[in-house]
Design a binder for these strands. Structure first.
Lengths: 231, 231
DNA sequence: ATATAAGGTGTCGAAATTACACCATTAAAT
DNA sequence: ATTTAATGGTGTAATTTCGACACCTTATAT
């Protein structure tokens, strides 16, 4: 059976690459589509921008409708504008990313019928995605990999209180390489934006680690003058 | 006299921030608009994307039509999508930048009637621009300032053969600070992607400097593994 | 008490970064 | 011919950062 689809001209859409970190693994949010085209395929959460909302607002709304997640700090990273990227017509999409702590998060679940389900999937083993979403994901992953080195995005993926080992394993997951424990700690602590708490990890069956907090205010002070690569 | 303007829904446009370097000064290309809205205002070169062209293609075409420049290496840097950014309707614009050698370039000149003129203007003394173009410019300037530190974009602004002093003064213009001559040279040369030529500057009334060339092939070899900020 | 699993810590050599000042060369002016 | 003006071109030493590397400590479970 062939399905006749409407076509459209000049539509903007938003697609979201939402990273989460859980059990030492980096994951992203996928949805199962419930609409043609690419019905039943896996895809990034994404939909069409309304006339009367900014693209930033649209990104928040769309993510909420498709996954139930709200109040993430979403950031635009690239716009995809190939003519044939959408089979039904001309759709230019602005891609956003966000980072989020998975732990303690209520289950993700679509609020609209455009998606059948939403779930976390490890980045290392992604299936083929609808549209050009695999390309969008790759572009986004490269972006955050690079940004990890000069922006405090790691802390958005961790619980508010975290151990240095957790922080290190996040860096290792994103950069995909092993780091030296002593050097990593020395360097992170030397920045001065980690606040040591009077509290320890609980519920582990081995020596509990100290907990730390990211001190956003100190970070901002330290890095207000940040352009420094040449001299 | 009040002018009635047509309005439109869902239009994509492109705006271009084109940097050039001349006489030790960083400049950008502006046009004088010949159409409402903002007729007679200064603006970034920009126009509407057609249905059957990718945004990258559109960026090239539009820049050509408004300034006569072709074959620049243009790169998207941000998409601006506030609802009210265009007085006639919903226009989302994708902003691109490019860098170009001004010297020896034929005069810039619009090919369409949408612009009255096109000209270079120093970045340090920009007038108020049409639409949200001042914001677009600022965003773009910050981008290239940062990219100067990890991408070989400086060489696109200089003539093919350049002196180390020219290179340094470009860095100083973009970063807006003085650099140490000896350290700058030591560092630049240590990378190994500058090729010293058997040729000297001509036509100067003082000791002529050696000329150098950027060796793109060596650069690519050196920086294929580049992620390195944490260990 | 013992085993297990991760927490937590310091040093040394190499490399990179920074600060800093003077002589050399060329063309133009006298 | 000499001087002047302007920029070209160079080295070193102190300091800081980076990277490699291994062992004892502590909490819990058995």
């Amino acid at each position: 059976m062939e399905v006749k689809l409407p076509t459209f001209d000049s539509v903007f859409s938003i697609d979201c690459v939402i990273f989460g970190f859980e059990a030492g693994e980096l994951k992203i949010l996928l949805i199962e589509r419930n609409e043609e085209p690419f019905k039943d395929w896996l895809a990034l959460p994404g939909y069409i921008v309304e006339q009367d909302e900014s693209i930033d607002d649209a990104a928040e709304r769309i993510l909420y409708e498709l996954t139930g997640l709200r109040d993430l700090h979403m950031q635009q990273f690239h716009t995809f504008g190939e003519v044939k990227r959408h089979p039904q017509g001309r759709v230019i999409t602005v891609a956003y990313y966000a980072l989020i702590r998975i732990n303690g998060q209520k289950e993700v679940k679509p609020v609209t019928h455009y998606a059948k389900s939403a779930f976390w999937h490890p980045v290392n083993d992604l299936p083929k995605l609808a549209f050009d979403h695999s390309e969008i994901f790759n572009t986004g992953f490269n972006k955050i990999r690079r940004r990890l080195n000069y922006q405090p995005i790691a802390f958005e993926l961790l619980p508010e209180k975290f151990t240095l080992t957790q922080l290190q394993s996040l860096y290792e997951a994103v950069l995909n390489k092993k780091l030296d424990k002593r050097n990593f700690r020395k360097k992170m602590l030397s920045y001065g934006f980690l606040k040591e708490l009077d509290e320890k990890q609980k519920g582990v069956s081995y020596r509990a680690a100290k907990l730390y907090k990211f001190d956003r205010r100190k970070y901002a002070k330290i890095f207000q003058n940040e352009l420094n690569l040449v001299q």
